[in-house]
């Protein structure tokens, strides 16, 4: 029983990380039709920014942790907005070329990070509370899981509130439904593109800082390894659906944890198998629009 609770909460923590990456991917894809391969680099950069900050301020304090999370968000948002503005916008409506540009950016930035910070993992320091455990129904759960879950829930609520109650949110929701109609009504959707990229980048940057605490290290490959699972999550959840991404993140991460524990480390394969099953039964994903 305690094992199952531990696996469930750990799965939720991992799912929170997936969601932080997948939410941005899904929003960007939903509005612009761009599959953003550089999203992993936003995450990695956020993680490195957070690490650089905590290295300078001493990583033991809560203030540093919160500051590094905020810095990760700001860096992620700034880089993502710059990417949209300088690269993606020039290729407006040419989806494949937009994907190719993000592929090039991902290759170049990972190489650049390796040049700057080296290829070896760098271990991070965190407030001592995070490495302790809390007992829930007999299960000793590492405390950092709660941080992940809390942050992801806040991000989810924040994005939902933003989409529902602000003018930009309205434009974005309308744009996901029917972009040409929004443009025809005289609204400049392109501003919304930059905003969506910035939001996605901020979530990824935050995800980067949290991922560095979840795994205990930062490395240039950090973003790439999470990105692949985030891709799977977005497909399973349905491209462009935020709620779908949230559900799929949790399902995928929990499945992964259970398979790793009970079926001898087959988590990654089970996730791919789940993807295959979802595609066979429902090619548009759980909450995807009808093709």
């Amino acid at each position: 029983m305690s094992t199952i609770i531990l696996l469930l909460i750990t799965g939720l923590g991992l799912g929170a990380l997936y969601f932080l990456v997948a939410s941005g991917l899904s929003l960007i894809y939903g509005l612009m039709g761009v599959l953003n391969f550089a999203h992993g680099s936003f995450l990695t950069l956020g993680a490195f920014a957070g690490w650089e900050l905590s290295r300078r301020m001493g990583g033991e304090s809560w203030g540093t942790l919160i500051a590094s999370m905020l810095l990760g968000m700001v860096v992620g948002a700034a880089v993502a907005a710059a990417t949209e503005f300088l690269l993606i916008r020039r290729l407006y409506n040419r989806h494949i070329e937009q994907v190719l540009v993000t592929v090039g950016l991902a290759l170049a930035t990972v190489a650049l990070f390796e040049g700057i910070w080296g290829t070896d993992p760098i271990y991070v320091t965190a407030p001592p509370w995070l490495s302790q455990t809390t007992e829930i129904l007999g299960a000793r759960v590492p405390n950092d899981r709660f941080l992940m879950i809390g942050a992801a829930v806040l991000v989810l609520l924040g994005i939902v509130a933003f989409l529902r109650y602000t003018r930009f949110g309205l434009i974005i929701r309308a744009g996901v439904e029917n972009r040409s109609m929004v443009t025809a009504l005289g609204i400049d959707v392109r501003k919304a593109f930059t905003v969506v990229f910035a939001i996605g980048g901020a979530a990824a940057g935050l995800g980067g800082v949290l991922a560095s605490h979840y795994f205990g290290y930062v490395s240039p490959q950090l973003g790439g390894s999470l990105l692949i699972f985030a891709f799977i999550v977005t497909v399973i959840g349905g491209l462009g659906s935020l709620a779908g991404a949230a559900i799929a993140s949790v399902v995928v991460a929990i499945l992964q944890q259970f398979a790793n524990y009970f079926w001898g480390g087959t988590g990654d394969l089970m996730v791919v198998l789940l993807l295959a099953v979802v595609l066979l039964v429902r090619p548009t994903g759980i909450l995807g629009k009808k093709a």
Binding site: L87, R90, L91, E97, L100, V101, V103, G104, L105, A106, L107, A108, T109, V110, A111, L112, E114, G115
Partner: peptide, 16 residues
């Protein structure tokens, strides 16, 4: 000193 960085940049320029 990172060949992949140069190639990636070159690639972006070609696409653009």
């Amino acid at each position: 000193s990172e060949p992949l960085f140069i190639l990636g940049t070159l690639f972006i320029l070609v696409v653009l």
